[in-house]
Design a binder for these strands. Structure first.
Lengths: 182, 182
DNA sequence: GGCCCCATGTAATGGGTTACATGATTGC
DNA sequence: GCAATCATGTAACCCATTACATGGGGCC
């Protein structure tokens, strides 16, 4: 039930489903994604449950927007979620499942696999670094002296960087060892 | 559609759904999990599709077992999966979503959050290290000189160790910085 | 005219969890 | 007698993705 809470977290200021989708694409890229087909019904349920309220406003371009905003009850629920402790669910790493059985693939395919994986994560790392450069150029207090609202958001980026760097590192090691074995 | 392929990968030797569940719990812990309620129907579909075959055998304890084994067609499908390139899906890191909004929680709760997170991952790291010790004690060729069947399986463990270590590291940093800010 | 962006939604399907149902054997 | 482990399954539900449907506005 986390999407519900993430939307709740974002509904500090009035936003439409379409607006929120942009946030997922631009800000949450490294740890969450959501489709409009999931966002719209979730927003509706949030309103039905009294955790948010919406009003229809005309848009500059296209049809009317439906702007949702968190209610006081919504803020209470958001806090409850945050204070219920960290939820560390089990990941499902598809590519690790593939590595586990990789001895069944042909020799070239094995190296190829790790090289493809490496370029995927190198690209992701580059993206994250670009985001970091943007943030640090924007605010002289980056990273540790940021105000609370920005400080905690920035922490998520720092884990992204560390984790992806670890994966790239592992890919390099794997490639080197596999080449040596042959 | 990865569970299908993981089961296929494991059905090298005849195994029951119940047996396979143990593998998820013991071997795949750090990158996959599956419930019996999902395993049984998937095995049935695998057989319907001609990718595996089963035979019923009496068990020492409890009711008859249904042992599944991969067919030649199943092996071809497994290879196809491995050679289709790495599938790096988008993770959903619930705890990072919480960190993103953590400025909305009270001050003690924020530190508490990271300390809880740290103990969770410290425990996971300890588990992984125990597995590693077991493997290295068992085989003098560990890790780089292992035969293919064991070598690639071991690589998944190495990424687990690196990633979890990176997360613990990040937790430490976060705790230190938050304490300094106050 | 065609394409992309804005904006909202529904329907079908897939993947996964929780709860429920059944029943034998082993060990305390 | 009771709990745990062995063993297989079904049903209801939840979360998420893909595909489909609608329509206005701006740009080339």
């Amino acid at each position: 039930m986390s999407l519900r809470h993430i939307l709740l977290g974002l509904l500090d200021q009035p936003q439409s489903g379409y607006d929120l989708k942009q946030v997922f694409e631009q800000v949450f890229r490294h740890f969450w994604s959501a489709e409009l087909a999931q966002i719209y019904p979730t927003l509706r349920r949030l309103e039905e449950d009294g955790l948010s309220r919406s009003k229809q406003v005309p848009s500059d371009k296209g049809p009317d927007k439906k702007l949702y905003k968190r209610t006081a009850q919504g803020t209470r629920e958001l806090k409850r979620w945050l204070e219920s402790g960290p939820t560390a669910g089990k990941d499902r790493l598809h590519y690790l499942a593939q590595v586990f059985f990789l001895d069944a693939a042909s020799r070239d395919q094995r190296l190829r696999f790790f090289k493809d994986l490496r370029s995927h994560f190198v690209a992701e790392l580059e993206e994250l670094r670009a985001v970091e450069r943007g943030w640090s150029a924007e605010d002289p207090h980056y990273p540790d002296a940021l105000p609370d609202e920005a400080f905690y958001k920035q922490l998520t980026l720092r884990l992204g960087l560390k984790k992806v760097a670890a994966i790239v590192d592992w890919c390099e090691e794997c490639i080197a060892v596999i080449e040596k074995r042959e």
